[in-house]
């Protein structure tokens, strides 16, 4: 599989898994008050400040067949997880967690508390309130989470390199391919790929901005 399609595949699976998870985690962080909440938030948002290579290192060590966890996983799957596409997805899920959680958390926090209470008093159950009242008001946050997660996964380099290695067709993503091209002085190929990523990133951010402006205008 070409680096482009591999990156798309990785971004697709990361987004599909992470957006619903981020939605639930973001909602919990927005509405629940519990002891140690700040620590949980710090853990969720850690990938924002932690160098990707550091995170990649820990993942590499823990997924290695030499570690207890890694060998357990390897015995279940029949092969070590490191340097495989599933390892890339796992790493990508962890790295992108804040990009999925933060927009969702902000979107849920922005819903007026009395609107949810009005739904309960109107007879809607908590699940009905979530589906009929909260989710429709959170669509911008969901769009934002999906776009950021997808775009950020496409561009992720450090963790992907550490956990996935650089195996052509298996774990060589677009950003690693750019690095490889530069290393081998193939500047034309690197230029096309970087331009493509740049264009995609700008488009993604513009979509989020325009959707946000339209949403505010209709409130």
């Amino acid at each position: 599989m070409s680096p482009f399609w591999l990156s798309i595949k990785l971004a697709f699976w990361t987004t599909i898994i992470l957006v619903p998870a981020g939605l639930l985690i973001g909602r919990a962080l927005a509405y629940w008050q519990f002891v140690g909440k700040s620590w949980v938030e710090a853990l969720v948002y850690l990938p924002l400040v932690l160098p990707p290579t550091v995170l990649g290192y820990y993942l590499l060590v823990s997924l290695s067949p030499n570690s207890a966890f890694g060998s357990a996983v390897a015995s279940i799957l029949g092969a070590p997880l490191v340097f495989s596409f599933p390892a890339l997805v796992l790493a990508s899920l962890i790295v992108n967690l804040p990009f999925a959680v933060q927009p969702a958390q902000q979107a849920f926090a922005a819903i007026a508390e009395d609107t949810r209470e009005a739904a309960w008093v109107s007879g809607l159950s908590s699940l009905q309130t979530f589906i009929r009242i909260e989710l429709p008001q959170c669509w911008l946050g969901i769009l934002c989470a999906a776009t950021l997660t997808f775009a950020h996964t496409l561009g992720e380099f450090g963790v992907v390199l550490m956990v996935g290695g650089n195996i052509a067709g298996e774990t060589r993503t677009l950003s690693i391919a750019i690095y490889d091209s530069v290393q081998s002085f193939d500047m034309d190929a690197a230029g096309w790929m970087t331009a493509g990523l740049l264009l995609f990133s700008i488009t993604a951010l513009a979509i989020v901005r325009v959707a946000g402006i339209n949403s505010r205008a209709s409130r």
Binding site: A112, D114, E117, Q137
Partner: peptide, 20 residues
């Protein structure tokens, strides 16, 4: 008894309409 089961009509200070 939960708010859903009470059959209460509540008018909120800031309306609390469902904006969507």
């Amino acid at each position: 008894v939960s708010p859903q089961q009470r059959r209460v009509g509540l008018v909120f200070q800031h309306y609390a309409l469902f904006p969507h």
